[in-house]
Design a protein around this nucleic acid. Structure first.
Length: 583
DNA sequence: AGTCCTTTGAAGTCC
DNA sequence: GGACTTCAAAGGACT
């Protein structure tokens, strides 16, 4: 039986990734920054445990084995390789539009990372410096040795293959730990001062005018830290550019000469299919300029796009059937967060199933402090802003129906079967105690780590207006009661006595947030009238929907043992809720 | 191959 | 204006 003691870093399994980095001072620091990551180890452990319930022999040792630890001397080098190859991939992948989600991307902080290699294939001085700084013990090759064999060669870059999405097992995962520093207005890397000149073009990579770059200017002062995506718009080669999409969207920045690469870049994020591809545009170093992105876009599942696919058939452009390119919605704060953290979660546990991971992320999201969330809200806001500038005429409605209509017809009648059917899936037992156990602070009824200033946090410019009803009440509980989890409506009918307080919506949702409950989403069946009198501490609801699997599935003895071992605190948890049998 | 699952949030529609 | 719906990402699971 796997070790489940919640006692800190006792368990390896989930943590082996981290452990592997402990050799590298900085990584350790970064990692430790991410409190939630560590917290969720419990989760992960639970996941692993759960998964290993039927295969208890696996787990920790297996995990460790699964990830051979590079020898210390080569590890740094390997990471460096990964680092740059990832940088390159990101760039070609339109990384600069995606990367806002990765504020800490080291490669974004390298002045000339646009091409870490010189034309002769050697590392550029600053890249070299950076590497040496980052990994002092690393013998940074001055030659092209660092070039990752796996790094995209022009051939690769040609977008044949939609640039892989590196979301999972992001090589930099340990490096891109979300950190306040990345947003810290006070610590803009010196080398990224606004006056930075592009080493090659001599053109200043100016931070964007704020009106143009609502994007990731982030906080004031942090501007330079993350190059505005449109930074690449600065005419670097005198190319014109941003082709107007077939869809006829107006050029948002008429004044700017957007080079094709940028357009690709832009399109890669927002509308991969809108911009003509320039397959041959490679960076002078032979490395594709970040902006010269292959349109290699991730194919949409519905495949309704890619009229301009350059992938294979340079030939006849598909008929311009889709007059209207598919422009995706800008990501909201949570999506941005997910994007950033998914890889991490995946790395931490063996889970691959997105649905499960999303559950974890959903709860992590709620466990974020308001400040942390605010950062994502801010990013999201900027993303929306940029999106609207890029595609002024675009409306979310345009995408309606682009995706196969989902069947949300699960009306109450089919709920039971539905649920039981779904229950068949081995679902990770995300213990409800997740956050509270991990964070004592939240054990007081708030799921937010943010110790204080709820109101202040609400004031966060980025955060949605506190006027949300969710401010007072978990909105999600009320607005999507049974869309996804119709079963809740069954068990949560106002009178749900035994299972009690998991009630959907309004009635007890407030109690779920009540301070009387250790877990916001799990209100103890105390009947807690207090919940009604006590203003919810949460501005954001914990979707108890996320708990349904764990709560409704009968806990195995093993599971319960795990729970008990986790924290004494949890003993006060409504295990009874968990006992709701799905059968 | 297509859809579902699962999450939150934004934006749309409908009444 | 509230309730509801759709979509954004992700990838395994399912049909």
């Amino acid at each position: 039986m796997p070790q489940l003691n919640g006692g800190g870093g006792d368990d390896l399994g989930a943590n082996d990734e981290m452990i592997s980095f402990k050799d590298e001072g900085e990584q350790e620091e970064k990692i430790s920054e991410n409190v939630s990551a560590e917290r969720d180890l419990d989760d992960v452990k639970s996941s692993l445990v759960n998964e290993s319930e039927n295969n208890s022999s696996s787990s920790d040792s297996e995990q460790t084995e699964r990830r051979p630890q590079p020898r210390p001397d080569t590890e740094s080098y390997e990471k460096a390789r990964e680092y740059f190859s990832e940088a390159l991939r990101r760039q070609q992948d339109g990384g600069f539009f995606k990367s806002p989600h990765y504020p800490g991307y080291p490669f974004l902080m390298i002045p000339d990372l646009a091409s870490p290699y010189l034309s002769n294939g050697a590392l550029s001085p600053s890249a070299r410096t950076y590497l040496q700084m980052k990994w002092p013990l690393l013998d940074v090759p001055s030659s092209a040795a660092l070039k990752d064999s796996r790094s995209p060669t022009p051939g690769h870059l040609s977008n044949k293959v939609p640039v892989v999405q590196h979301a999972h097992m992001h090589p930099l995962t340990p490096l891109i730990t979300y950190s306040n520093d990345h947003f810290s207005p006070t610590t803009p890397p010196a080398h990224l001062s606004p006056e930075i000149l592009d080493p090659k073009t001599g053109i200043p990579r100016t931070p964007h005018p704020s009106e143009l770059s609502p994007y990731y200017p982030l906080s004031p002062g942090a501007v330079g830290q993350i190059p505005h995506p449109l930074g690449w718009l600065v005419p670097q080669q005198g190319q014109p550019m941003y082709s107007i999409p077939p869809g006829g969207f107006r050029h948002p920045y008429p004044a700017l000469a957007m080079n094709a690469s940028m357009s690709s870049l832009v399109s890669s994020r927002f509308s991969p299919h809108m911009v003509p591809h320039h397959p041959h545009s490679l960076h002078q170093t032979g490395i594709p300029h970040p902006a010269i992105v292959s349109p290699a876009i991730k194919q949409e599942p519905n495949g309704d796009l890619s009229p301009t696919s350059h992938t294979k058939s340079p030939g006849p452009p598909k008929k311009e059937e889709d007059k209207k390119p598919h422009i995706k919605k800008p990501l909201n704060a949570f999506m941005l967060y997910m994007k950033e953290m998914r890889a991490k979660v995946v790395a931490e546990c063996t889970l691959k199933e997105s649905a499960a991971i999303n559950q974890i992320l959903g709860r992590r999201w709620h466990s974020l402090s308001r400040e942390e969330q605010a950062k994502y809200y801010e990013l999201a806001r900027k993303e929306r802003q940029l999106h609207s500038q890029l595609y002024p005429g675009w409306s979310a409605r345009d995408n309606y129906g682009k995706r196969k209509k989902r069947k949300r017809d699960n009306k109450p009648d089919s709920t039971v079967e539905d649920f039981s059917a779904r229950n068949k899936k081995p679902c990770v037992q995300y213990l409800p105690q997740e956050k509270m156990i991990d964070s004592p602070a939240s054990s007081h009824g708030s799921m937010l780590d943010s110790p204080a200033t709820p109101s202040a946090a609400l004031a966060s410019p980025a955060a949605p207006a506190p006027t949300h009803s969710e401010q007072a009440q978990p909105l999600s509980l009320t607005t999507k009661p049974d869309r996804h989890h119709p079963h809740f409506s069954l068990i949560s009918k106002p009178s749900s006595s035994s299972s009690s307080s998991i009630s959907s919506s309004s009635s007890s949702s407030s109690s779920s947030a009540s301070s009387s409950s250790s877990h916001p989403a799990i209100s103890l069946s105390t009947g807690s009238p207090a919940s009604q009198s006590t203003p919810p501490l949460l501005s954001r609801p914990i979707p108890f929907t996320s708990l349904h699997h764990s709560l409704l599935s009968p806990p195995s003895p093993f599971h319960q043992a795990a729970l008990h071992s986790h924290h004494a605190l949890f003993q006060s948890q409504p295990l009874s809720l968990v006992t709701k049998s799905a059968d």
